[in-house]
Amino acid sequence: MRLARRTHVLQVERLTPLGLTPAQARALSVLGRCDQPPRMAELAERLGVVPRAVTPIVDALEEAGLVRRRIDPHNRRSTLLELTDEGTAMRTRMYQARVGAAEDLFASLTAEQRQTLLALLEQADAATASHRH
């Protein structure tokens, strides 16, 4: 748990200069992984929050020029969300910030220790995934 907390703190420290809250960064990450622009309700579902919680996040991302809303051509009552070019560039900067945080976190480990840790994490992830299915 301490490691998870420390990872979170390091990521927040790296994301803050980018002008993003953790919730905004998470929403950008999710939007960037969508095959098709999602509706607001779909984004809320993927984030695991109620739909009304997404509105202020999307408002802030739109105001920053990272996300645009557009009317769903198949259902004019629905709004689709898509990353702007600046939003895509911000996802790249976020990724670099997260890599930097991980490098800081594991800087004291040798290459061999990092390989061992990676193997253990992959094994734990595989075991967890098999229990979910």
Rank of each mutant, 00 (worst) to 15 (best):
R46F: 10
L105T: 05
R93D: 08
H74C: 13
G19N: 01
P17W: 03
S130W: 00
T16G: 00
R77V: 10
D35Y: 07
V12M: 06
E122I: 04
G19T: 04
T84E: 09
V58I: 12
A44L: 12
G48K: 10
D85E: 15
P17I: 05
L43H: 07
V67G: 06
L83M: 11
I57R: 11
D104F: 03
A60V: 08
E112L: 05
M40A: 13
S29C: 04
M90K: 06
L18W: 01
R46C: 06
A89I: 03
R39E: 11
A127F: 12
R39Y: 05
E82A: 15
A25T: 00
T88M: 10
R98H: 05
A102F: 12
L10C: 05
E112N: 11
R69W: 13
G19Q: 03
E86C: 08
A89N: 13
A60K: 15
R39W: 08
A60Y: 04
T79Q: 15
R70G: 11
A23F: 09
R26L: 01
E103H: 07
I71Q: 06
A64V: 03
R76C: 04
R93S: 09
Q11R: 13
L20W: 02
M90V: 09
E62V: 12
D85Y: 10
E63F: 13
P38I: 09
E82H: 06
R98M: 11
L80G: 06
L10F: 11
E86A: 15
A23G: 05
Q115F: 10
V9W: 04
A4F: 15
E103N: 03
R39F: 08
A27T: 03
H74T: 09
N75L: 09
R33C: 07
M94Y: 01
R70A: 15
H74K: 09
N75A: 15
R98P: 00
L105A: 07
E63H: 14
N75V: 10
L47Y: 11
A129Y: 00
A107C: 01
S130R: 04
A126W: 03
A4I: 13
A111F: 06
V12R: 10
R91W: 06
R2Y: 06
S108F: 00
P38K: 03
I71L: 14
G32M: 09
L120W: 14
E103Q: 09
L3R: 15
A53P: 10
L43E: 06
T79I: 15
A127I: 10
T7C: 07
A25C: 02
L117P: 13
G48N: 12
R76H: 08
G65Y: 13
D35W: 05
L109I: 04
R39A: 14
D72P: 15
